[in-house]
Design a protein around this nucleic acid. Sequence first.
DNA 1: CCTACCGATCGGTAGG
DNA 2: CCTACCGATCGGTAGG
Lengths: 223, 223
Amino acid sequence: MHEETIAPNLPSVAEPSAKRPRGRPRKTDDERDDGNRRHALLSAAAQLFRQKGFAATTTRDIAAAADMQSGSPFYHFKSKNALLYAVMEEGMHTALARQKQVMHASDPQGLHAAEQLRALVVAHFEVLLGPGNDFVPVMLYEWRSLQPRQRKSLALLISEYESLWMPVLLMLHAQGRLRAPVGLARLLILGALNWSVQWFDPKKSASLQDLADAAVAMFLKES
Amino acid sequence: MHEETIAPNLPSVAEPSAKRPRGRPRKTDDERDDGNRRHALLSAAAQLFRQKGFAATTTRDIAAAADMQSGSPFYHFKSKNALLYAVMEEGMHTALARQKQVMHASDPQGLHAAEQLRALVVAHFEVLLGPGNDFVPVMLYEWRSLQPRQRKSLALLISEYESLWMPVLLMLHAQGRLRAPVGLARLLILGALNWSVQWFDPKKSASLQDLADAAVAMFLKES
DNA sequence: CCTACCGATCGGTAGG
DNA sequence: CCTACCGATCGGTAGG
């Protein structure tokens, strides 16, 4: 999920090969790529799948965005569908890692449940709306493009993710700060957050922290 | 959006022409179709677009589901895209009509703002989750498949819809029962509701009324 | 990873 | 609304 540093005088990755000296620049010694090309495909796919949808994106689109020829994605991935799955899997791994990190950071500090919820919400927003983070949005909006087996596999990661929220929500419920059955509250809260993908504009919307504050203030009763 | 009554011994509309006596049953006198065939296409398209997505649905799929030949949808609609737009437009008209009806019914009864919100939420759930209501979900999840001109046109209907919520939300905000800026509150609330499309199961979930009660209880502070 | 290619499918149309 | 069809595109592969 790191951004490649591109020297300002080089054309951007997605640019057609017009002004470039025919062909892709050959790897130099300081430009090793091991899983590098594979990840270039993943990033390109994530961005395009999010922008145009899985079915409307062609493997040629993806190849071009990763600066490859039309057949080359299939050297790295068995099928277009496998590419979709890989995008989603990376998205969930990122989200899980981020969320666990947040919980470990807040736990020993003895944060209140409300503060823990806030931390979870901020992390969720970051994974969803942070620059270049197209992986999780693809997962949210292309579920129906998965095969049953792939769904089952991802569902495990998702329920692991959701289970991280449960202790916090249960605590808040016990404190009387959260109405509605906890399971339903989780669906409504995550729904409200996930929908931000549709309207969030980094140039016009508030900061992720401010959004998180407002959301938590709306969901929770006064203590 | 009315359900067609189907005699139990007849095959369902979407069923392939296996057990049927070759070809489409000819219109009888009591089976006039004026805009009827057109609407059969709309319903089939809505269901398929929701199920598989716009790009993954072929016009042949739609034609077959409406019991027509592959070229026939283009007699009723200029393009596949025009069909998508028509589905969304019908969805928004239904939603607007339903919502206005709800507001007119609740207004003279002098309902409290919280009760008005509850009525809006129930109506929203119905339009979203009611049996056969695939039109609005398609609008929510295929926005990116629209052309810019179509988006602009639909955006008018959407903002009309959202503006129906504003007086109620403003009132609740003034009463101190709704935290967060009203505009953001609207986005979060509608997001929480819209997300239900992803998890609602008529066989397992609570009734739409119970869901609405829980949602309103969670969003609003005690009075 | 590229070149060259195949088979299938798809949106759309002419002409009735 | 059907029949018959076209041109373009697409996922995927062989063979290097």
